[in-house]
């Protein structure tokens, strides 16, 4: 058992060291949501009125509305970034080192996932802190209540990243992930607009948004930030995490998926 914990500590520790060494990555992960919040949201504020829907009990500004969506966006980008670095690791060889550990592969992948999710949490809170400096605040206790939700969302999107990394052959193919995963997931969700607004435009798009697990990451965080609990969101996020996690373990099975093709 100690061996398992040692591996956990080492892999999480390495993720933190990489995080510390890559300050540009941290800054760009912060700038992206801030651009949305301080520029995009300001522009849209007048165009988009948000009526009172749960968990909000009063009219809110558009900036306030999109904060949970932007938190989830950080998780989404980090999950993809982490899988990008896995593909890079594989090309560079350090993935080989990880996979020749005598401990079970699913445990190695889980450690990696826990490490990258923990870092995502730090980034989300750095973003929330800056948003608060600009006057966009949540209930104080909400910040605390949202921690598990943010972490869980990080796990789900990190697991999705693992799945993708096991099927992407080369670094160059990664641009496709941007177009086919990140953008559709983000825009077809409740991150930027409430789902009822989407339903007014198109029932079909509304239904797709309602099926998108990313929507539930956003809603889970949104409700927790207001000290409310959204059971559906929690169940969907847990379910999706398990599905993605299982798919990742399958993809990294040496007799299937990963490296099956000659690289």
């Amino acid at each position: 058992m100690t061996a398992w914990l040692n591996v956990l500590r080492a892999i999480v520790g390495r993720e933190f060291l990489r995080f510390v060494h890559q300050r540009e990555r941290f800054l760009s992960a912060l700038v992206r949501p801030l651009v949305w919040l301080l520029i995009f949201a300001a522009g849209f504020r007048a165009a988009l009125g948000v009526s009172i829907i749960p968990p909000y009990q009063t009219y809110i500004t558009y900036e306030t509305y999109i904060v949970p969506g932007l938190c989830a966006m950080i998780l989404l980008f980090n999950g993809m970034q982490s899988s990008l670095s896995l593909v890079y690791d594989r090309e560079m060889g350090s993935m080989r080192l990880l996979l020749t550990s005598p401990l079970p592969r699913w445990w190695l992948l889980l450690c990696r996932l826990l490490g990258s999710s923990a870092i995502s949490v730090l980034q989300v809170y750095a973003f929330l802190a800056i948003a608060a400096l600009f006057g966009i605040t949540m209930p104080t206790l909400g910040y605390l209540a949202a921690v598990p939700g943010v972490f869980l969302g990080g796990l789900m999107l990190g697991a999705l990243g693992l799945v993708l990394s096991s099927f992407i052959k080369q670094l160059e193919n990664f641009a496709g992930v941007m177009n086919f995963v990140i953008f559709p997931m983000f825009f077809l969700s409740s991150a930027l607009y409430p789902l009822w607004k989407m339903a007014e435009s198109s029932e079909l798009l509304h239904d797709i948004c309602a099926l998108n697990p990313f929507t539930y990451v956003v809603e889970l965080i949104r409700f927790l930030l207001y000290l409310q609990f959204n059971l559906t969101a929690l169940l969907v996020v847990i379910g999706a995490t398990l599905v993605f996690g299982a798919a990742a373990v399958w993809g990294y099975d040496p007799s299937r998926g990963l490296m099956k093709r000659k690289s």
Binding site: T2, A3, W4, N6, V7, R9, A10, I11, G13, R14, L97, L98, S101, P102, L103, L108
Partner: peptide, 12 residues
């Protein structure tokens, strides 16, 4: 080396 040792479950 320490990272590798942990991956191999060597005692600290």
């Amino acid at each position: 080396l320490a990272y590798f040792a942990a991956l191999h479950g060597l005692p600290r």
